[in-house]
Amino acid sequence: MKGTNIILCGIGGEGLVMLSNVIGEACRLAGKNVISGEMHGLAQRSGSVIVHMRIGEEVLSPLIPPGEADMIVALEAMEALRYLYYLKPGGVVLTNKRLVHPPGETHDLVTKKIDKYVEYDEVVEAIKEAGVELQEVNALSLAKKAGEVRAQNVVMVGALCSALEGVIPRDSIIQAVKGTVPEKAVENNVEAFELGVDAYRD
């Protein structure tokens, strides 16, 4: 079952499902078959969210088996590490340079069940130790630069677009972004997308 398998993950409220919709729509525009499976069960804001995206003629299952994802795209770094087991050996982790401490971790810290927060560098080190390729994108600063602080997910779409060169044409992704975001925010989102594209190339 050849194809391209991508795990998208992050925290509820970050716009992950929108990210997956852009990729899915871009595949349709490019005439590619695509399947995705999303899981946000009880995840209100702040819960862990994962979407499985599968591009290719022969894919059938909405779930990617562990060890078979070509890439993990994370809007938050801890979630990249949490779902690392989906990645194939030598696969690529594309993560937003951002760490969000769950309230439970803060509670544990204050009640002295743990003596410190997990740090971004520790998370990144653990990902590297697993022997995978790591790409970091500072999506918040790029989204701010694009004039739309909520467009961190679109910055990540841009970075993913670079990573997927040859799988989905860039024009299709831009068209999908334009069709997905609110009309008044199109310009800033396209800018956020372009900044993401460049960030991955650099």
């Binding site: 925290i11 509820g12 009880l42 995840a43 209100q44 804001r45 702040s46 819960g47 862990s48 088996p65 562990p66 060890g67 801890m78 979630e79 590490l81 949490r82 690392l84 087991y85 990645l87 401490h101 769950p102 309230p103 439970g104 971790e105 544990d108 743990i114 997990v118 520790e122 998370v123 653990a126 990902i127 130790e129 697993a130």
Partner: peptide, 27 residues
């Protein structure tokens, strides 16, 4: 062809440093 369980066991070890991210009441 592939030992999924062993793969998961190995990879989840790297994630042991992580706190749980359970759903909580919104701000």
């Amino acid at each position: 062809p592939f030992d999924y369980k062993e793969h998961c066991r190995k990879m989840k070890k790297y994630a042991e440093i992580l706190p749980q991210r359970l759903p909580v009441f919104c701000a």
